[in-house]
C-alpha cells in the first residue's frame, strides 16, 4: 500500500463568481521511502498538491490517503495532530523561528508538538545536528547563519519527529545552485538514513534530475511521470 494515494483529486478556489481549478483530477501513488519531485512551471498546481498532501488545505473532490488515513475528513485540530505525528515540512523561505537558536528551532516540534522528554529531545536534536553538519552552529540564531545553513536546520527540524513523510515546497528556490544541490543531497542522505519519504516541488531544471520519481505538472494536471531510467505517461 502506498504512503500517499491520490484518486482523482481536485481543488477549486472561488473568488467571487469566478472558480479557478488549481488541480484537475490528479491520481498517483507514492511508495514509502521514495524521493519524489513534482515539477512544472509556476501556477501548474505543485504547491496546491503539496498543501493537500500536507493536510494544510482541503480537497474539493476525489480521495486522498496519507499514511493510510483519509485526510479529506480531518477537521482543523485533527489535521494539526496528524501533521505533528506524520509530516515534516521544509519551506522555500526556511521559516525558522527567529527568536529560537538553531538547537531550539530543531527542538521545537518535539517540545511543542510531541511533548518529548528533555533527555529524548536533546538526543534527537544532537543526532540531527550532526547529521546535517550544524552541530557547531547550534547556539546561533537564524540571522547569524547563511541561507544554506538555514535550510539544513529546516531539514533537521522536518526530520526530528521521525515523520513518515517530508514535504518540501521549492526548498532550493532561495539558494544558489551549489547550495541547492547540497541541500538536495542532504535530503537524499536523510532519506537513506531515516527511510523517510521525501516529496518536493521545484521548477529548477538543474535539480530536477536528482529526484528518483518525477511527476510533471501543467495547468493543474499531472501530465507525466518519469522514473530514473525510463518514462511513463500518466
Amino acid at each position: 500500500m502506498g504512503l500517499v494515494m491520490a484518486e482523482n483529486i481536485t481543488k477549486e478556489y472561488h473568488s467571487g463568481e469566478v472558480t479557478v481549478r488549481a488541480l484537475k483530477g490528479a491520481s498517483f501513488n507514492i511508495e514509502p521511502g521514495s524521493f519524489v519531485s513534482f515539477v512544472g512551471p509556476s501556477g501548474s498546481g505543485k504547491t496546491t498538491l503539496l498543501n493537500l498532501i500536507g493536510c494544510l488545505d482541503k480537497l474539493s473532490a476525489g480521495r486522498l490517503l496519507v499514511a493510510g488515513m483519509d485526510v479529506s475528513s480531518f477537521g482543523k485540530k485533527d489535521s494539526a495532530i496528524f501533521r505533528g505525528k506524520n509530516i515534516g515540512f521544509i519551506f522555500q523561505d526556511f521559516n525558522l523561528i527567529p527568536v529560537l537558536t538553531v538547537f531550539e528551532n530543531i527542538e521545537y516540534p518535539l517540545l511543542m508538538v510531541q511533548n518529548a522528554s528533555p533527555g529524548d529531545r536533546k538526543k534527537r536534536v544532537m543526532s540531527l545536528l550532526d547529521a546535517v553538519g550544524m552541530a557547531e552552529q547550534k547556539d546561533k540564531y537564524p540571522d547569524q547563519i547563511s541561507g544554506g545553513q538555514k535550510q539544513r536546520v529546516a531539514v533537521a527540524r522536518a526530520l526530528v519527529t521521525n515523520p513518515k513523510l517530508v514535504l518540501a515546497d521549492e526548498p532550493t528556490a532561495n539558494l544558489d545552485h551549489k547550495t541547492a544541490y547540497m541541500v538536495i543531497e542532504l535530503m537524499k542522505k536523510m532519506r537513506d538514513d531515516f527511510q523517510t519519504t521525501f516529496i518536493f516541488s521545484t521548477h529548477d531544471q538543474k535539480i530536477v534530475g536528482e529526484a528518483e520519481i518525477l511527476y510533471m505538472m501543467e495547468d493543474g494536471e499531472l501530465v507525466g511521470k518519469q522514473m530514473k531510467g525510463g518514462e511513463e505517461h500518466v
Binding site: 482543523k76 494539526a80 509530516i87 515540512f89 516540534p109 511543542m112
Partner: peptide, 16 residues
Amino acid sequence: IREIGTIAAIGTLPGK
C-alpha cells in the same frame, strides 16, 4: 503571521 503559519503547519495546536 508567517511564523504563526509555520508553527501551525508543523503541528502546533491552536490552543498552544
